[in-house]
Design a binder for these strands. Structure first.
Length: 576
RNA sequence: CGGGGCGUAGCGUAGUGGCUAGCGCGCCUGCUUUGGGAGCAGGAGACCGGGAGUUCGAAUCUCCCCGCCCCGACCA
């Protein structure tokens, strides 16, 4: 039983000055966590119980799925990370240190290498697969900007799993098993979440999804279709377009367009010259970029911007994308800055990538590759060729859902889980192979699956808190029921203590506010701040042989006969 | 890393050149109070982030450093 009189807990009346987001403010005020350094937090008893409850649920679901728990050190040697090139690739985000002999060590940011090596050390036959193992461990990343309290820390608790399979079908099955386990886990945590398709990025995996808990303070942006449920990370959103249905345009017509460096100024000129009704979306923007050392042109409708992050996510293998600079223009004399059109791209030796909205047969107003000249009726497929269609424009609310063509909304969320098919990158780098049926050596294929455990504490808090404090789902709360004794008479405290003990005997986890010196008001405020889902007040109603039962979330209050209290409270708490 | 802001007691803060650094919460002692963050009285707690400088005198001005928060860039 948690007794308030002895609990290491000091609630704060004022919001801490360094906390902005609600979960952070309340977790500090309610005495769950304390900041030690930027992005580094200590857990006080209430917070640690909560964190362990979440760990417990995750562990139960992982075990139920047949995954096995292991544990690695947080302090790791350099060599394995050297072999996979991550000692360098991870860059400044990696916490590095040296031992007394001058050897390099790191604090693990994620443990692919160690898992791979563990399996390599123990297994060597296809008969041993499939295998899924996981750990719950503190991870370290020297984030450039830790923020939002526990949501993005430099040390945090993560559950990471890895699956090992012989072939792609096996990997798909392991992936699905994790997906289902995650659904069960997050449902039990009481989180609202969307599973969104993500881009697997440079890792080269074939499938990747994120579990996003919607919340205004979240730092991830995603697209959601409220009609059909389609959800995607903005980078992974796809565009569905209809074939061009308009009539074919007349031949290209070049016209003078002095001083129209921007799309807006061009549209003004068009309306003046060719009559009103021209829109930015009738024009074609040619964005010149350098992808690593290759010049590319990205065509987007004039009313759209290129989202470099999204573009890069859709160009696997490309490490750096940047805008053309004057020096780059100098290398392509055929390109007239501000008046570029795709008509001469072939001639200039530039690869043309285009937004899918630039469909075959559609015609556009674009630059004429000559100073102060534009051209209209430039038709895709007739006057220029697109080498490749690519999703690269900035996604906007109101863009159409690729499934059902309904305008989508854009929402913010906290990423609480990420599952993806890693493939053979680590197995190859660390030479994890097994012998197959035919006695041939085969590289194992892997999946990687993470849950932000400490982050989940904040995510649940964000989704459940209200103006007066935290408000946990029962399985996560530090206790099931919070018994508050008010008044000063010994009988009250005696009755409250007995009730608390009886409830505990029944199997409930009880927090008991047995403080003699605190006023009723203080105790009520604290109980509401702390957020245990049910509050039982033993106080003035005791004179009539009753106690008060409150539901934290709804604020409902009711009176219960003391004699029936244990049973009724037990029933109310456990059925909820 | 770029932009903005901040650093005074455990927490929230006042104090923009003047002598003993003030207030609220919390904490300790006593009395009173006890259903919505109680009252009175007394008390403990601060090298004013650090260093250097300017000055008769620095929390206050100058310079350097450190730390923290927010926005952006970045990020399983």
């Amino acid at each position: 039983m948690l007794k308030m009189s002895t609990l290491l807990l000091r609630t704060l009346r004022d919001d801490p000055a360094d906390a902005e987001v609600a979960s952070h403010r309340l977790l500090v005020r309610a005495g769950y966590v304390r900041r030690i350094a930027a992005g580094i937090y200590s857990w006080l008893p209430l917070g640690y119980i909560t964190l362990r409850n979440i760990e417990r649920i995750i562990r139960e679901e992982m075990d139920a799925a047949g995954f096995q728990e292991v544990h690695f050190p947080a302090l790791l040697p350099r060599e394995p990370y050297e072999k996979t090139n991550r000692w360098d690739e991870y860059g400044a985000d990696l916490f590095r240190l040296k031992d007394r002999k001058g050897n390099d060590y790191l604090l693990g940011p994620t443990h692919e290498e160690m898992f791979t090596l563990m399996v390599k050390g123990e297994y060597s036959s296809y008969k041993d697969l499939p295998l899924s193992i996981y750990q719950i461990q503190n991870k370290f990343r020297d984030e450039t900007r830790p923020r939002s309290g526990i949501i993005r820390g430099r040390e945090f608790v993560m559950k990471d799993s890895y699956s090992f399979d012989l072939d792609d079908e096996g990997l798909a099955a392991s992936y699905e098993a994790h997906r289902q386990a995650y659904i069960k886990t997050f449902d039990r945590l009481g989180l609202k979440y969307n599973i969104v398709s993500a881009v697997s990025g440079a890792m080269g995996g074939s499938r990747s999804e994120e579990f996003l808990a919607p919340c205004s303070t979240g730092e991830d942006t995603y697209v959601l279709c409220e009609k059909c449920g389609y959800a995607a990370n903005v980078e992974a959103m796809t565009t569905k377009v209809e074939a061009y249905s308009g009539s074919a345009a007349q031949v290209m017509e070049i016209f003078d367009s002095p001083s129209t460096p921007t799309i807006d100024s061009l549209v003004d000129l068009l309306n003046e010259k060719f009559g009103p009704g021209h829109k930015a979306s009738d024009t074609l923007k040619n964005v010149m970029l350098m992808a690593d050392s290759k010049a590319i042109s990205v065509l987007v409708p004039g009313d759209r911007e290129v989202d470099l992050k999204r573009l890069q996510a859709n160009m696997p293998g490309v490490e750096e994308i940047r805008m053309f600079e004057d020096a780059d223009f100098a290398k392509f004399p055929g390109l007239v800055k501000g008046y570029i059109g795709p008509q001469d791209a072939k001639k200039n030796g530039i690869e043309v990538l285009a937004d899918p909205r630039i469909v075959i047969g559609s015609h556009w107003i674009t630059g004429a590759n000559a100073k102060d000249k534009h051209v209209r009726f430039v038709t895709n497929g007739r006057d220029f060729e697109v080498d490749k269609y690519i999703e690269a424009v900035q996604v906007r609310a109101g863009d159409l859902c690729p499934n059902c063509q309904t305008p989508v909304i854009i929402d913010r969320a906290i990423e609480i889980g990420h599952i993806f098919q890693l493939g053979r990158k680590y197995a190859e780098a660390l030479d994890l192979t097994v012998l197959d049926k035919d006695g041939k050596s085969r590289v194992v294929t892997m999946g990687s699956y993470g849950i932000g455990v400490s982050r989940a504490v904040a995510a649940v808090a964000e989704q459940t808190l209200d103006e007066i404090g935290l408000s946990w789902p029962r399985e996560i709360a530090p206790a099931d029921v919070h018994v508050v004794a008010t008044g000063r008479e010994d009988e009250v405290f005696q009755a409250a203590k007995t009730l608390a003990e009886d409830l505990e005997e029944k199997g409930l986890r009880v927090m008991y506010d047995d403080r003699r010196e605190a006023s009723a008001g203080v105790k009520f405020k604290d109980a509401e701040l702390i957020g245990i889902p049910f509050i039982v007040v033993v106080g003035k109603a005791l004179a009539e042989g009753k106690v008060e039962f409150r539901v934290r979330k709804s604020g409902e209050k009711s009176e219960i006969e003391l004699l029936k209290a244990v049973t009724e409270i037990y029933n109310a708490v456990t059925k909820a």
